[in-house]
Write a protein that binds this DNA or RNA. Structure first.
Lengths: 364, 364
DNA sequence: TGTTCGAATCTATGCGCTTAGACTCATGCC
DNA sequence: GGCATGAGTCTAAGCGCATAGATTCGAACA
């Protein structure tokens, strides 16, 4: 079978130079109509599809954006359907209601929509650890890159930011010329605290979540200051510093249950953590919200499906994804010269797990 | 700000030729260790990231796969959060339980996983109609392309198949050298019919779905032959030939309700259609499954969340997505010389809407 | 000491396209 | 008739990298 058709083939068949072929596709007005038709017909005959690598090389830009995320599940065993966020094993497993779509997926959705709206191709990649080969490869392919930093080191991001504009989903400040996109974790936690204190008259509130995740630390700080605002002394440390994906998860919380040392309310650093907490409490026979109130953070879908449904703070994820793509496109491949940042507001979503809402209602 | 570093810059700084720089990255064993270290150090200093366009051009392949899908929602108005599959309007709307994740999303998930597992970059794009500019652009960027054909014409697919291997999610036969990947729609419908007839002793069964969608037509044929196998004469046409996204949806069904002409069971061509039917029936005060049994096809998440939960036939979507990527990678950019196809088996999933299952259970 | 050989590196070319600038030639003007 | 003009087309260079094949050079060996 013949090799792929190129501009040269089309040019020869249409009896013009390759420049004219290129113009016929990129600047049609510059080419006489009859010539253009001849060229397009030749291209059609030959099955000619312009090679985007060559175009990108010649133009110095690709019209593509990248989204790099972090996927714990990729580490899983390697069978045909391994590594999935599915509930079970085998060749046909249903998706896990808990894990699809996640925080990341909703942002990705917004990013996708905006890419297509702006006529950008979207490149997706994902890694499992701090290694940089995948994200570097991606950086070599696109005009702008949005990154869920996960376990990537600051040095890695800094390195990449020398080549192209990088947007990071994180509000953590830094002096690296990245665009930091995040939400007001602080205000979000305060509104949750206000709700628990003012509506439910709860004052015995503990925090669950690891402080070495920057976002979680901000949420912890919001929790502390929220309590302070009501004159409540806050514990200096979380009740439990678990994070998802770690061994021995929620060990401290489990201990507290065993010791009968549970607070009246548990505020979790994320929805996923909160769902794990709900599971644990149910397992131990602790009733939510009767015995303990539980809150999350993020507003993922699974929080609407759990029993009880989860009171949380919702991030405008789709809007954030869209914004990310907009910023990168508008920047046209130019790196930022100084750190940028943008914080999105969050919204309190009151459901059953704090004692509001009508138990049994699925959704909303 | 300086322009991007290239091999030339690295070579100069490390005191070697550009060939050696390239080898240091691509065939490290070929380069003396001390030289390699010097080169990598220079690259680090300069912020050098290899340009994938240049590499792809030089090598004649990109190590990337494309996935093209069809997205009705892209046509929606253009506000910041418009065009989303979200339930409502405004800057922060929650995802619609009905629309996320869809059939397409689950296949995409499998495709993603396999791409990353095989060290392929994934390019995603999506269009709204029969226009080919987007899918052609994608075809110019990748070594292999998986396509949800949607409104694309056969000619378009044929054209693209001259340039690179194309896999189509559809079992419709054709003489174009594409890889057709689908499921056994026929057997799936027959197992549903068998269930309705043998377990629920229902014989008055009608089909809802448009026949101009190839998959739906196959399902209709499975329905017809299933009835025949039980000695039941099948209606020559569906009760209603609606498809999602069309105006005046389910008009015939609505009419049947008004006329009191509903059959004992309604088999829908897809889950999404079945969910719409459930809505309509509930709206009209028709009880499912007491008055009418309803079934779907696909096995999307939303069918586990509806009330009643939806009896359906499930496609192994993640496995299909994985398989698609495998086939394309294994083919190494070579077009197929003749049409290929592969059909995946489906699995009957019995839930509440046919009268099985315990009402009120969410999930499974 | 001369020869062979292989490791390490370099030279040179081409991948397919875009685009600045040169060229051609019909047209309209003085 | 000479000349400027501009539409249409072409020539030629370059984008950043991979890699075949040439070259260099030290080690091994007779």
């Amino acid at each position: 079978m013949a090799r792929r058709a190129t501009v040269y083939d089309v040019a020869e068949r249409a009896g013009v130079s390759i420049a004219t072929v290129s113009y016929a596709f990129r600047q049609p007005d510059r080419v006489r109509e009859s010539t253009r038709e001849r060229i397009l017909a030749a291209a059609q005959d030959l099955g000619y599809v312009p090679n985007a690598n060559a175009r990108g090389l010649a133009r110095g830009k690709t019209n593509a954006l990248g989204l790099y995320s972090f996927d714990l599940m990729l580490d899983a065993p390697q069978g045909l359907s391994a590594g999935s966020r599915a509930a079970g094993a085998g060749d046909d497993v249903e998706v896990d209601l808990r894990a699809f779509p996640l925080y990341v997926d909703e942002i990705q959705r917004g990013f996708e929509l905006e890419c297509w709206h702006r006529d950008q191709t979207l490149l997706l990649s994902s890694g499992t650890g701090p290694e940089t080969s995948r994200v570097t490869d991606l950086a070599g392919r696109v005009d702008g890159l949005a990154v869920f930093p996960g376990p990537l080191s600051d040095e890695s991001l800094q390195f990449l930011s020398r080549r192209l504009p990088i947007l990071v989903f994180s509000r953590e400040p830094s002096d690296v010329p990245l665009f930091h996109l995040g939400v007001d974790n602080y205000a979000g936690m305060r509104s949750l605290v206000d709700h628990l204190v003012l509506v439910h008259h709860v004052r015995d509130i503990m925090f669950v979540g690891a402080l070495d995740v920057p976002e979680y630390r901000q949420r912890f700080e919001g929790y502390v200051s929220g309590l302070a605002a009501h004159g409540i002394p806050a514990p200096g440390r979380p009740l439990d510093e678990s994070d998802l994906g770690r061994a021995d998860n929620l060990a401290s919380l489990r201990e507290a249950v065993a010791d009968g040392a549970l607070p009246r309310a548990v505020m979790c650093a994320s929805d996923q953590l909160a769902l794990a907490v709900l599971d644990l409490l149910e397992d131990k026979g602790v009733r939510v919200p009767q015995d303990v109130l539980v809150t999350g953070f993020d507003g993922i879908l699974a929080g609407r499906l759990s029993a009880p449904t989860l009171t949380t703070v919702r991030q405008p994820m789709e809007a954030m994804g869209r914004f990310a793509a907009q910023v990168l496109v508008d920047n046209g491949g130019q790196r930022w010269t100084s750190p940028q940042s943008r914080s999105f507001p969050v919204r309190l979503v009151v459901r059953d797990s704090c004692g509001c809402g009508r138990a049994g209602t699925v959704g909303h």
